[in-house]
Write a protein that binds this DNA or RNA. Structure first.
Length: 816
RNA sequence: GCCGCGAUGGCGGAAUUGGUAGACGCGCGGGACUCAAAAUCCCGUUCCAGUAAUGGAGUGUGAGUUCGAUUCUCACUCGCGGCACCA
């Protein structure tokens, strides 16, 4: 008898699938479509890690399961290849990023094949391929024409020593990652996508998404919609009397409690009027310090600091009170108007600040002590207004409405909606990204590169290191930068910033539908056939990527390029695999498990795949267990061995145990099918293990021809998780074609139902006996049998039951 | 701090609408095969008492609803994840 040898059967089937292009699909009306994809990988130099193996096994199991159910399954693969690691490697070694990337892709592709992932390789895409980013650029140009891409000044991290812009991840503890000097914020002109215009549209669709609740709430909070009032306060002193200071507040009902105003250090009025203040030097010093503070410092330094702009006041529109204006970095320029009305009686931050700087505190609730506004907001009816003139004594529900009307009457403010979400900063001063397809002309300003001049190909350079002028290396390629304006034909310069990598990944799921189209980004008919993605599998990017793909799809829908707004129907968000010691896998800890090592050790891809699916529910984090891997290998071995024994055994025509065999098999088919459908892979595998254990017990009676049906069904059932073994066994048992193009086994409901059932007998809710009764036993018989049971009688003491609860087919509960 | 999720044997986990808690796997104990070991196969395995039948306790803690709660409600403790001075 041949031993189970994955090292032999796995390459055999991988070559077969390759040679037959088994997983290539085209649009067809004959079958229901099913589009499943993992989040495409960044092909790093170290190859697939265990997280990849997990993610793409989930994808593949779904793909194979539905393929076996007659669906037209699209399971594509592509490479998210722009980004920092390749660029840094290039800076260090001088190797072109494209070269490094090419090798890494080849390695990844090979490894995916060795895991038996059923991919349609004809649809392979690569974001750094000019034929791909040509359309990324085209989309940018479309966004630009629609006013969804624009330029504005924004704060960027700037290293004054290296004279370069830094990305967030290049700032470590407020210091430049390369030279170690302190970085500062600097205002520079940047490109943005106007995602805020779609804030409401994106928010409105969230409740209907079949996505994990935690991702939905993360996105809801990220968008952060809040309704409040924009209120203008007249300025006074330092020559500012003609100006207003506008604030945003959700607590306008506390406006009588405003005892000071706070503006962000970057707020324009600071520079405009601070110079006339007596404490001008202090203000300047404070602003400068705030600019240098990294986000981390701000976090550590929880204590609030600030300086007043001496001599500058604001007039409270509701009562004419003259209020001092302060500068403090706990107010952010980027939210609301960059200025607040401070209400220390009801806001914790303002309270802390007022105490520290001895600013008066006015309580506007009848409690006359500090009450955080979140409490008031939670139950407005229970709090009453105080120190609020004619509004005193009103509950906050009424007072809020009346004060709002009163403020509106004075023309000082109105209700508005604010979002926490900011526009998406898309420009990067880096080499290894898709060039922004814009030409700057002195006469015509920023002009989109015409469609027929796309792609704007990334020029080759010798040195990839930034030159220190705050621009990307592209700025040094003069004959690339200098061009002609498409509008006027005059001399013009190319934009030298490249796009954030997230741009490339915001539309790749649509490109898979039509990956080789050189006339358009995709044919809408093809995209509308495949999209939305039915299952999108990943364990990362709760907001960023998963919000951007939604944003772009909404825009594409508006452009008429897509028939629907939401690109992902069901999001499968899986957990992390930790190391055996329970900690995160990391090279420095030396606890990394390389999935290909597991394959090479002789376990094979099927064991690896089945193991990662058996570890637990996919949405939970788990820890690697080498003992667990061995256990799964044992299981696959048992499946194999059973099949070999059957094939070489003498088969009886029929056995007494055949009916039992049939019942077991049909029950398992039903259970496993349901579990796969719910993505409950661990219990599906457990059910198959249970069947195999039972089959081992049954085989002592010998084999009959009935076994053929069971073993074939078993081969099909393990197919989604262990496709090589399944294919091999399927072939051995005379199955035609490939296992996942065979019809999925059906079950007979009458065989699934047991003819005898175990009825639990409880007395006062405690189990006292178990009865084996024919299915469908009526209540009267069941109760009588239960009452007659010896052990039950011990506990009922022959008393007449006060009540009997009967659950058909399950239990009798006798209450005495 | 806010939001979301979770807590079940020695361990990972199971229990589809409230109805036998601990499926399946690991580990552990015992047995078969073997000169022996590995591999394989079989049996047992929540804890306590008992040879056993059986009894008692038991799903983070405390209460509640119910004939019956791992499941529902309230309060709390701990852990994980996301966001974080968002006015």
């Amino acid at each position: 008898m041949q031993r189970y040898n994955p090292g032999e059967i796995e390459p055999k089937w991988q070559q077969y699938w390759d040679a037959h292009n088994s997983y290539h699909v085209i649009e067809t009306a004959d079958k229901p479509k099913l589009y499943v994809s993992g989040m495409f990988p960044y092909p790093s130099g170290s190859g697939l890690h265990s997280g990849h193996a997990f993610s793409y096994t989930i994808v593949d199991a779904i793909a194979r399961f539905y393929r076996a159910h007659g669906h037209n399954v699209l399971n594509p693969m592509g490479w998210d290849t722009f980004g920092l690691p390749a660029e840094n490697f290039a800076i260090k070694t001088g190797t072109a990023p494209a070269e490094v990337t090419k090798d890494n892709i080849a390695n990844f592709k090979n490894q995916f094949k060795r895991l038996g992932i059923s991919i349609d390789w004809d649809r392979e895409i690569n974001t750094t391929d000019p034929e791909y980013y040509r359309w990324t650029q085209w989309i940018f140009a479309q966004f630009f024409k629609r006013g969804l891409a624009y330029q504005k000044e924004a704060q960027q991290w700037w290293c004054p020593v290296d004279k370069t812009v830094l990305a967030n991840e290049q700032v470590e503890n407020g210091k430049c990652w390369r030279c170690g000097n302190e970085v500062e914020k600097k205002a520079m002109k940047q490109w943005f996508f106007k995602i805020t215009e779609y804030a409401d549209a994106l928010l409105n669709e969230i409740p209907d998404l079949d996505w994990p609740e935690k991702i939905k709430t993360a996105q809801t909070n990220w968008i952060g919609r809040s309704e409040g009032m924009a209120i203008k306060f007249q300025l006074n002193g330092l020559g500012a009397d003609k100006e207003h200071l506008e604030v945003f507040t959700t607590a306008h009902d506390t406006i009588y409690g405003v005892t000071f105003m706070v503006v962000a250090p970057e707020h324009p009025i600071v520079e405009r009027y601070g110079q006339f203040a007596d404490n001008q030097a202090d203000i300047e010093l404070y602003v400068e310090k705030a600019a240098r503070k990294s986000e981390l410092d701000r976090e550590i330094e929880k204590k609030k600091t600030g300086v007043p702009i001496e001599g500058l006041f604001a007039i409270n529109p509701i009562n004419g009170n003259k209020i001092p204006v302060w500068v403090a970095d706990y107010v952010l320029l980027s939210y609301g108007t960059g200025a607040i009305m401070a209400v220390p009686g009801e806001d914790e931050r303002d309270f802390e600040f007022a105490q520290k700087y001895d600013i008066p505190i006015v309580f506007t609730t009848e409690q006359q002590e500090f009450v955080d506004y979140s409490h008031i907001k939670a139950d407005r009816k229970s709090y009453r207004l105080a120190n609020s003139d004619t509004f005193n004594g009103m509950d906050f529900e009424t007072g809020r409405q009346k004060i709002m009307e009163s403020i509106k009457e004075t023309d000082a403010g109105d209700m508005i909606v604010q979002y926490k979400m900011r526009d998406w900063l898309i420009s990067r001063q880096r080499y290894w990204g898709a060039p922004i397809p814009i030409i700057h002309c002195e006469k015509d300003g920023a002009v989109a590169v015409p469609d027929d001049q796309l792609p704007v190909v990334l020029p080759e350079v010798k040195d990839y290191a930034p030159k220190g002028d705050g621009q990307s290396v592209l700025a040094t390629v003069e004959d690339w930068v200098n061009t002609t304006c498409p509008e006027c034909g005059g001399p013009a310069k190319r934009e030298t910033d490249t796009m954030d990598g997230y741009a490339c990944s915001s539309w790749y799921l649509l490109r898979y539908a039509d990956p080789k189209n050189d006339q358009q980004a995709w044919d809408p008919a093809k995209a509308n056939y495949w999209s939305p993605v039915d299952y999108y599998v990943g364990g990362d990017h709760a907001v960023a990527h998963l919000l951007y793909v939604r944003f772009w799809a909404h825009v594409f829908n508006d452009m008429g390029l897509l028939s629907h707004k939401e690109p992902v129907k069901k999001l499968v968000y899986h957990g992390y695999i930790n190391a055996e010691d329970g900690r995160k896998m990391s090279k420095s800890l030396g606890n990394v498990i390389d999935p290909l090592d597991i394959v090479d050790q002789g376990y094979g891809a099927d064991t690896l795949r089945t193991y990662v699916m058996f570890m637990g529910p996919i949405e939970l984090d788990s820890s690697w267990s080498s003992k667990g891997v061995a256990g799964v290998y044992r299981f696959l071995n048992r499946v194999w061995t059973l099949s070999q024994e059957y094939q070489s055994a003498e088969k009886a025509d029929e056995l007494d145990s055949d009916n039992q065999l049939r019942r077991l098999t049909h029950k398992t088919i039903k259970k496993v099918t349901g579990d796969y459908r719910n993505l409950s892979f661990n219990t599906a595998i457990a059910a198959m293990m249970e069947l195999v254990n039972e089959l081992y017990k049954l085989k002592v009676n010998g084999f009959s021809s009935e076994w053929q049906n069971s073993l074939r069904a078993l081969a099909q059932l393990i197919g989604p998780v262990a496709p090589h073994l399944a294919s091999e066994l399927w072939q051995q048992h005379g199955g035609e074609n490939e296992v996942d193009s065979a019809e999925w086994p059906a079950w007979d409901e009458t065989l699934v139902l047991d003819d005898t059932v175990t009825i639990v007998v409880q007395v006062n809710g405690k189990v006292r006996a178990k009865l084996s009764l024919p299915a469908g036993t009526d209540e009267k018989t069941a109760t009588e049998t239960a009452l007659a049971d010896e052990n039950v009688r011990k506990f009922t003491a022959n008393q007449k039951p006060a009540k009997v609860v009967y659950v058909p087919g399950r239990l009798v509960n006798i209450v005495v």
